[in-house]
């Protein structure tokens, strides 16, 4: 093989190796959490499909809707506790729904509100189905509308929030 061809082959090989290495690493990272979060009911019953159950002390992400009336804020600090429930269509909250309590101490995203989709990252305590969260992210939906339209009734906004799941 002449040197020029050899050089070219090295370049091509290194590009391909670098690319597959990067993709491989990313896919590996993704395989750990390609399903980004557990739903509250999945904490109780195991994941849909695979049936994997989360264990006590496991770090995981939980995704659900903030149950209206469940948000308790500490007056002197940023501490907050709220309950998450599965999303159902149409949106209804029932006391008997499986719920997970999320405790968090930090700055919440601007979109945090009752009835909003939330993804929290934290350590699970199966004793009281509590998650001590280190990160709370808002998950919004794909519906956008002007404020004036939203005034027509809270029903539309709730429906909109729900569709994101």
């Amino acid at each position: 093989m002449n040197p020029r061809r050899k050089k070219r082959l090295t370049i091509v090989a290194s590009i391909l190796i670098a690319l597959s290495l990067v993709s491989g690493l990313v896919l590996y990272a993704l395989s750990q959490n390609i399903d980004l979060f557990y739903k509250p009911s999945e904490i109780y019953n195991g994941k849909e499909g695979t049936g994997t159950k989360a264990i006590n002390g496991q770090r995981l992400r939980i995704g659900g809707l903030v149950v209206p009336g469940s948000v308790k804020r500490d007056e002197n600090s940023l501490k907050i506790a709220f309950k998450l429930a599965d999303m159902k269509m149409p949106i209804t909250f029932d006391e008997n729904d499986p719920m997970i309590t999320v405790k968090y101490d930090g700055i919440l995203p601007d979109l945090f509100r009752e009835g909003q989709g939330i993804v929290a990252n934290g350590v699970l305590n199966t004793d009281g189905y509590i998650i001590e969260a280190t990160e709370v992210l808002a998950k919004h939906d794909e519906n956008y509308m002007p404020k004036e339209l939203e005034m027509d009734g809270s029903k539309t906004s709730m429906e909109a929030t729900a569709k994101g799941y």
């Binding site: 990272a29 993704l30 980004l36 700055i107 995203p109 601007d110 990160e135 998950k139």
Partner: peptide, 10 residues
């Protein structure tokens, strides 16, 4: 909006 610049979601 979400509270993070980046997340390794799909």
């Amino acid at each position: 909006m979400w509270g993070t610049w980046w997340i390794w979601d799909a």
